[in-house]
Design a protein around this nucleic acid. Structure first.
Length: 177
DNA sequence: AGATTGATAAGG
DNA sequence: CTTATCAATCTT
């Protein structure tokens, strides 16, 4: 039986949740139909000291959602054409989030949001109570590997080299019965 | 390697 | 108001 991820779960640090979200189910209800996709790739963005994190330059109108409590959705329009979907984690007042970079059928953060109909109207949604967008755990624990984050050339070298990207090891889990 | 695309943030 | 920048993707 699938269990919906609740507030206590999202209160953990992004550094813990990023690997743990691998294999979880991203659920989206659109036009009365429920879509479920298994998360295959995430990245961790953590604190104002992380120069790759949007919040590193301080709190602004755009990044304030990163400071909200865990379980909030952060949807950001990048390069004018791609909606990127993040899960805000941790306690209120501390900026951290996990970027969902890929799901089973769609690789690439811009493609999965387009496929699931995720756009900026879902920004700041509380996924612990929303019936449009939420996360589920069906008990599968896939094996994953780590890598350096991508697309963050603007960050300082110390942050570019952190292994905060988590990718599923394909075929390492059993399909849902 | 280059074009695309528009919100966001910083500066005048 | 103007300008530069971007957690990407597609085509050449």
């Amino acid at each position: 039986m699938n269990k919906r991820l609740k507030k206590e779960y999202f209160r953990q640090p992004a550094t813990v949740l990023a690997p743990d979200l691998i294999g979880k189910l991203l659920c989206r209800k659109v036009n009365g139909e429920i879509l479920r996709y298994r998360i295959t790739e995430t990245e961790c963005y953590y604190s104002e000291q992380d120069t790759a994190c949007h919040a590193s330059k301080g709190k602004t109108e755009r990044t304030k959602v990163l400071y909200m409590q865990g379980g909030t959705a952060y949807v950001y329009l990048c390069y004018g054409m791609h909606s990127l979907f993040n899960v805000v984690t941790g306690e209120e007042g501390f900026p951290e989030a996990v970027l969902i970079r890929g799901v089973e059928e769609y690789n690439g953060p811009g493609k999965l949001t387009k496929a699931m109909g995720i756009d900026r109207s879902l920004n700041e949604i509380d996924m612990t109570v929303s019936d449009e967008l939420w996360l589920e755990d069906d008990g599968i624990k896939p094996v994953y590997r780590t890598a350096k984050r991508v697309g963050i050339d603007y960050a300082e070298e110390k942050d570019r080299n952190i292994l905060w990207r988590y990718i599923i090891d394909d075929g390492s889990y059993q399909p849902v019965k």
